[in-house]
Write a protein that binds this DNA or RNA. Structure first.
Lengths: 345, 345
DNA sequence: TTGAAAGCGATACCAC
DNA sequence: GTGGTATCGCTTTCAA
């Protein structure tokens, strides 16, 4: 493969001049020189070596994306949008699956650092874990997606940007949709364990219930996902929780699922128990994954503006790599309700 | 960040010696020297710069994975298995989405080449396109997943490995499952357009029908996916084709869908048309994506051994990078039937 | 407007 | 056993 020296020799100029062309510094250059160099590049089928450029400049033109598992449709959708946003800026995406294991997270960050990747988007992980701050201290710029920080950390000086949907609004939107459909006995169904994003969704849900005057005890139904569930853990959890719902008396008439995958499992479980959706129980999810519309009856869902969010994440990453003095910030995006058939009207 | 020279200075040795440690050449080394160097690395929090190593050695420790869209669950599942196989060998995966556009494919290959990535797995793309051979000519090692080559190219000397499920067996397995359930009037439902993998599936399907003595004309029902369908194109196509199925008289009593996504759409469309599954029509898919089991009634499906396939792909990639003299080969994997509720018994 | 040369961080050959 | 040094391909002052 031809290198910059071959091109220079072939065009009868110096390496620096060729480099100037590569970097767009052609305004002061004689037309004729430029033409000769471009011709030489073409004739030699020259492609600049990014690795060498990177070694010299320290710039990688790659960003990392760390997700729990790409098989989860929510993260696949995120990956797509991040890929598009990155591509628009001539960046490539290096994918990391943590499979929810901390050592995988660490290893990924290590590797990104060693590969000169300066910016990483971290989805749905607890950002207070020390390896994130350590990476930040070593010059890595991090953006968190769908924040999972305990409140006390969030309030302190945080070294990362955070981009998420307004989860309070999302919870409220979902509950209000059920209430508008005439539901009186609603409940929120979720995986056990408190995270910022879960807490906010529940808060919004309870707000709406309070405002409608239908607040009661025990409005949150929760269970632990089993690792054994594997790829479909959320859905399996939903199915398992359906059993818990069915035992309540009187039966709830409306459910908000913390995410669509869980909601889909919930619907399947309820149906298996002989319950009609939405006639007996209405269900609304959060996330609006592509599947939501595919499963009869279509699952109504609260949708985050993923493309906009991905765009901001990539933009902030690049901006803060450029100028580390920029202070981290929190970005909140407004969700939209997508109406399908799982909620009575 | 500390570099190799800092470590050498700190340990009072030369860079060569440190480099020897980095590359495991420690057998001839004095224990005490080794200990001093390791200590220096720890004290300086030294991490070797992979970019520099790569510039020198030409080895990237990354492989590329080119898929039509990561949002498609089949490719998400593939990506996961490839990621695991790569991780087992200390490699990372660079993801490329083509969104079915040829220029994206080209750009991805260019970029991989420029980044020093020597091995790329290409999923579900027509390998006879010239940019693949061009990349191969420039030293890139390619493995094709789920081969999409016209027969004439396949028979010639092919510069790539090819790894796929035995699609003839898959088509036969699916048809036999319907036949075993008592279906007499079966059909194969697919996206229009001939590729190797589609052709093979249809061939297996027809074989089984012939053997059962139920071969007839017009056993293949097909339609074109609309770009407008977007993420859910296969599913939407399935739904559209359901309309075509319903118009047949007499109605078929068993359908093989070319893939699960299409099968899921097919089931939805049939149900909307008031047809009971599997009472009136049985449906079986091919791929066994995680969704298949989630949608009531669970979609029976023919499953490729993805993990094994990913493993072979990565292994071949690394082997052929190591020794380009190794001749390309074709690998065929045997599928398994996963029984769910969408086929009567 | 163009060129010479130092340097990014590691590797590996050849001395000693 | 360990060290000196040219080299990978490119960027970037500084001079001319």
């Amino acid at each position: 493969m031809a290198n910059i020296r071959d091109v220079a020799r072939h065009a009868g100029v110096s390496v620096s001049t060729v480099s100037n062309v590569l970097n767009g510094r052609v305004d002061q250059m004689r037309q004729e020189t430029l033409a000769r160099i471009e011709q030489a590049m073409r004739e030699l089928n020259y492609h600049p070596n990014r690795v060498a450029q990177q070694l010299k400049t320290g710039q990688a033109k790659m960003i990392g994306l760390l997700v729990p598992s790409i098989v989860n449709p929510s993260f696949a959708a995120l990956a797509r949008e991040v890929d598009l946003a990155a591509k628009a800026r001539q960046y490539r995406v290096l994918l990391g699956n943590t499979y929810r294991q901390e050592d995988e997270e660490q290893a990924f960050l290590e590797d990104m650092l060693a590969h000169g990747v300066r910016g990483v988007i971290v989805a749905a992980s607890a950002m207070e874990k020390p390896h994130f701050s350590r990476a930040a201290a070593r010059g890595m710029v991090l953006v968190n997606y769908d924040s999972r920080m305990p409140a006390d950390v969030a309030s302190g000086a945080m070294p990362f940007d955070s981009v998420s949907m307004d989860n309070v609004a999302a919870g409220r939107l979902a509950a209000e949709h059920l209430i508008a459909g005439g539901c009186q006995r609603i409940a929120f169904v979720t995986e056990a364990g408190r995270t910022m994003s879960r807490g906010h969704k529940i808060e919004g849900f309870l707000d709406a219930a309070r405002q409608a005057g239908i607040l009661r005890e025990q409005m949150v139904i929760e269970g632990k996902a089993l690792a054994a569930y594997g790829d479909t853990e959320m859905t399996d959890l939903g199915r398992a929780l359906a059993a818990q719902v069915v035992q309540q008396s009187p039966l709830p008439d409306g459910l908000v699922a913390i995410n669509d995958a869980l909601g889909i499992g919930l619907m399947a479980g309820l149906r298996e128990a002989g319950i009609a959706i939405p006639a007996q129980i209405s269900v609304v999810g959060i996330d609006n994954i592509p599947l939501a519309g595919l499963i009869p009856p279509g699952l109504s869902s609260v949708m985050p503006p993923l493309a906009d969010m991905a765009d901001i994440m990539v933009e902030r990453l690049l901006a803060r790599i450029e100028d580390p003095a920029i202070a981290p910030q929190e970005f909140l995006f407004h969700p939209t309700l997508i109406r399908r058939q799982s909620v009575k009207t």
